[in-house]
């Protein structure tokens, strides 16, 4: 017999930037709202709140996802990386540094999501994931070799992050600056500490 469930809130543990947090959440609460309202991690932004703008992007088990569409109750035990976990002012992540150097933002509201999404995107490319911009002949060889990222590939792979200021040209340049090798070194270390296999 299945027991009747009556609770509309639950207690979950989330591992955010290598720190475990146990919180009680109304089932309607998204991970984005837990991060911002309960854990005071306000780097992840609420733009559209419908998975369309990418401002809320986090890494979930090392992969980029829209935290506004993830119910906290369904992610008990999950490992998350937010923009706060990538680096700080003293030791910025190479992509944060590149955004700074390339002036890859104007108002800055979409920037944390752009950077986290960019880190996730570069990992996907390093793992050989194809994209809509990948020619059919390359797609079909499926060698598993890291994907080569020209500007068309970067723009296609970043299309889930909207910038209302239109800073796209510099965002693309910042992403071009960060080599796969750099990212593999830094993010590979972050993944290992989270116990996530690449």
């Amino acid at each position: 017999m299945i027991p009747q469930r009556t609770a509309t809130s639950s207690t979950v543990t989330l591992h955010v930037n290598d720190t475990a947090h146990t919180v009680t959440v109304d089932h309607r609460t998204t991970l984005l709202d837990v991060l911002r309202e309960q854990l005071d991690l306000t780097g992840s932004k609420k733009g559209c709140d419908h998975g369309q703008c990418g401002a809320c992007t986090v890494l979930l088990e090392g992969r980029r996802a829209n935290s506004c569409l993830l119910l906290a109750v369904a992610h008990d035990g999950a490992h998350l990386t937010t923009v706060e976990g990538l680096g700080d002012e003293e030791r910025p992540h190479p992509l944060q540094q590149a955004f700074h150097e390339r002036d890859a933002f104007q108002c800055g509201y979409c920037t944390p999501g752009q950077i986290v999404s960019g880190v996730g995107m570069l990992c996907e490319a390093a793992e050989g994931h194809p994209s809509h911009a990948t020619p059919g002949s390359v797609l079909q060889r499926a060698t598993g070799a890291p994907a080569e990222l020209d500007r068309d590939e970067i723009r296609e792979r970043m299309s889930g992050n909207i910038c209302r200021c239109g800073a796209y040209p510099h965002i693309v340049e910042a992403l071009e600056d960060v080599t796969e090798q750099t990212l593999r070194r830094t993010d590979g270390a972050a993944r290992r500490t989270e116990g996530v296999s690449a």
């Binding site: 992007t57 980029r64 996802a65 993830l70 999404s117 994209s131 809509h132 059919g136």
Partner: peptide, 23 residues
């Protein structure tokens, strides 16, 4: 899928965004 069913790969990659396809 890439080798044997390329139209399926292409269809999936033409939909949504990188974040949404991961989820």
């Amino acid at each position: 899928v890439c080798r044997g069913y390329p139209a399926l790969s292409q269809a999936l990659l033409s939909g949504a965004s990188g974040q949404l396809r991961n989820q």
